[in-house]
Computed example of a mutant assay.
Amino acid sequence: MKRTLMTIALIGAATGAAAAEIAPGEVPFEDGAVTVSLTGAPGDPARGREVVGNKSLGNCVACHANSDMSDIPFHGEIGPMLDGAGERWSEAELRGIVANAKMMFPDSMMPSFYRVDGFTRPGNAYTGEAADDSFGPLLTAQQIEDVVAYLATLKY
């Protein structure tokens, strides 16, 4: 049994099998940055662009202007412009900012997209019942990686 587990581990390492997803409460922040991938898989910039502009997902353009998204109306002006984000911040800094901007910028108004604790939650929908523990993060770990991959493409 021990030999089988070791063989499986070696095969996984040799084939580049992805690491386990990092849970929201386990994200290792270093000065606000997150140097390790949340999924072990690369992000997809095209899917990240969709998350940034989609009102049902990240809706980043509600607060940030982005010249690359002229096809999407009503960009906000509360947060910094996303143009050049890939030059202003490293991939690790972008990951930290998207996951939980308050770790780098404590007074930020930006939502913590990969956080599930430390909130005062509203009641359970409109039922009048207290909130339960079923609230997940606003974005999945892969969506965070996709957004980071997209933001990294935004150069001046």
Rank of each mutant, 00 (worst) to 15 (best):
T4N: 09
T4D: 10
T4H: 08
M6P: 02
T7I: 10
T7C: 03
A9N: 05
L10I: 15
A13C: 07
A14H: 01
A14W: 02
G16P: 02
A17V: 12
A17D: 05
A20N: 08
I22R: 00
I22V: 15
P24W: 01
E26R: 11
P28V: 08
P28H: 08
P28D: 11
F29G: 09
F29T: 12
F29R: 06
G32F: 02
A33I: 06
V36M: 14
L38S: 08
A41T: 09
G43P: 04
R47T: 07
G48F: 05
G48K: 00
G48M: 07
R49W: 10
V52I: 03
G53I: 12
G53H: 01
G53K: 00
L57T: 07
C60L: 14
C63W: 05
H64A: 02
A65D: 14
A65Y: 13
N66I: 07
S67V: 08
D68Q: 15
D68Y: 11
S70M: 11
D71K: 10
I72C: 09
G76P: 12
E77P: 03
L82P: 07
D83W: 12
G84V: 13
G86K: 06
E87I: 14
R88M: 08
R88P: 10
W89P: 00
W89Y: 13
W89E: 05
S90K: 05
E91K: 12
E93D: 06
R95A: 06
A99Y: 01
A99R: 00
A101E: 07
A101G: 14
M103Q: 15
F105R: 03
D107Q: 04
S108G: 08
S108A: 08
S108M: 06
M109F: 14
M109R: 12
M110F: 02
P111E: 01
P111Y: 00
S112D: 13
S112Q: 12
S112R: 05
F113P: 13
F113T: 09
F113D: 01
R115A: 15
F119K: 13
T120P: 03
Y126H: 11
Y126D: 15
A131D: 04
D132M: 01
D132E: 04
D132W: 02
D133E: 07
S134G: 13
S134P: 10
S134E: 09
F135Y: 07
G136I: 12
P137R: 10
L138C: 04
L138D: 00
L139E: 09
T140G: 12
A141G: 13
Q142V: 06
I144W: 03
D146P: 02
D146I: 01
V147N: 09
V148P: 06
A149T: 15
Y150G: 11
Y150F: 14
L151R: 00
T153N: 12
L154Q: 04
L154G: 03
L154N: 04
Y156S: 15
